[in-house]
Nucleic acid binder design. Sequence first.
DNA 1: TTGTAGGCGTTATCAG
DNA 2: CTGATAACGCCTACAA
Lengths: 349, 349
Amino acid sequence: MPRTHLISMKKKSNVTIHDLARQLGVSSSTVSRALKSHHSIGEETTKAVKQLAAELGYRPNNLAVSLRKQHSTSIGVIVPHINRPFISSLVSGMEQAAREAGYNVLISQSYESYDIEIGNASAFFNSRICGLLVSCANETTQYAHIQQFKDSGIPVVFVDRIPENDECYKVMIDNREATFKATEHLIQQGCRRIAHYGGPPQQLMYHLRRQGYIDALAKYGLPFDENLLLTATKLTPEEGFVLAEKALSLPNPPDGILAVNDNTAVSTILYAKSKGIRIPQDLAIIGFNDDPVCTIIEPNLSSLHQPGAEMGKMAVSHLFKILDNEIVDVPRTTILSTHVVQRESSLRI
Amino acid sequence: MPRTHLISMKKKSNVTIHDLARQLGVSSSTVSRALKSHHSIGEETTKAVKQLAAELGYRPNNLAVSLRKQHSTSIGVIVPHINRPFISSLVSGMEQAAREAGYNVLISQSYESYDIEIGNASAFFNSRICGLLVSCANETTQYAHIQQFKDSGIPVVFVDRIPENDECYKVMIDNREATFKATEHLIQQGCRRIAHYGGPPQQLMYHLRRQGYIDALAKYGLPFDENLLLTATKLTPEEGFVLAEKALSLPNPPDGILAVNDNTAVSTILYAKSKGIRIPQDLAIIGFNDDPVCTIIEPNLSSLHQPGAEMGKMAVSHLFKILDNEIVDVPRTTILSTHVVQRESSLRI
DNA sequence: TTGTAGGCGTTATCAG
DNA sequence: CTGATAACGCCTACAA
């Protein structure tokens, strides 16, 4: 009967430091210290402990460690959708940086919904994440669900979609400058009536992009025509077709389009081509994000490149610095650089 | 003096059930039970507890709950790369299903590396995930790092990239059938010399896809020409160009190409067009995955559609059933259906 | 209906 | 150099 017991030596992995301690005739504190090569433990003891741990397949229980240390190693990430090129690169960068440092990444999608974002934040809080990275839902205009983290000393870094608040840590691009440069590029290519597809205006990001567009027009003395300022809410390819039709059927249609993302820009190219409008001769187009699709659509789509993976890594790096109290090294706002990638869709000269 | 206490009402969120208990003059077990509306607790007590909990901003500590219950609510996910259309949809589906059930999703990327996959699995194990979803790295041919979970009673579901092992839970498509259908489609469109870009052959998935291609040729009495069977390792767009050049510069070039993914198919279209090869008249092409790019490349790329998000949801659903001991409801192998999406790149009739 | 006590696995403090 | 003890926050027999 004890036989069966011994035979089932299937390395059960509930081995704890106490099991090791018992078998070695030492205390569990000694085991705990030996496992992390604490200097105060004798060489032999340490070796013996580590060897037995390996033999029995001991695995530390991070749940217990985190509870005891009052500090977990899980970073929470909230994004609107994972399956979008820019965001999946962003998340990929976060995951890479976090894992290299031995941290886990908890992921969640808000689907652009404020309520879901609140729920996700709440779940993360209860899971005692050690830090939060958020790219806000378009719906989100209040931040109480984020404030709870700060109140508990859990650092938060906003990425890309950020709130209008100077107090918080942000990693982003200069959205105004980006669309300014994009608009400027179109102007330099000879466009004089440039339309802009803007995103949901309550999102600061889209507001700034609008502003860059307007500022560029002003700088070059081009009139601002309200009819040329369209607003998108979903920013899907489908919506892109609607916008394209709207813009191109104006009595006085645009000769250039600055789209707030590549989805809508691509749809516009497809729509224009189907109507016999030549790109870029009749209509120059530039998108935003520099998604992979830019080099596949014909003509290739000019776009504003923003470094997704780098933004993710940077956000994680900032998070770690804040956790390590090297706050002085972390600027409230980090601006990553963007650049216009000039491709056929906008090159008229 | 108690005043100051009351005034500093900055809801510090380290409130525990003991704090609530103390303030209400009850025991912490009562609080614990009241919070989950245990029937044995008086209505008034329950109400009082919940109200105070809300006032003080009490938040349950999942770390402690999991430790105590010996069961966490975190699902680990290992995929090769997040930022690929199919995989990000897969992960998105997983996240959605998991979160709806109140579970967290821990994500990690293997970058197709066996060693990194092992490291990720190890980290997850230490974090005491309650279940694992894996889509294996191409390098992976051994599964000891996965076995540890099974040995500890932690369910594992393989998704898409699965091992050659009947014992494990798998959610996948019928890869052989998929490429069989795709090849058949090309044959029905009049192709007689069909080339195939295969993936790393050690991955069962790619082996099966090769087999479907070969079987279809056989069924229709077409000769199998080794020169038409190319092998890709990275499956990147860049590699697609190399493969395209290799295939199209053969002495007797193919009139149809079955690519193992859309990346390489798209590159082939671009390459062929640059060489004046007409698609689909001179060369019919079909890809695999049905990435968004298929409807943007011109001509639109035919492809094999596989339901990414559904696979992810299904995997999570299976995991939950296994956790709930409803094992009888979970088939070892779940095959999701695929279909050929016929587009211009292959329609010659 | 409520309270007591013990423990989940680990680490930190203090003592030897 | 090592050990005993007490937490971390929660849950759950068992008692009352």
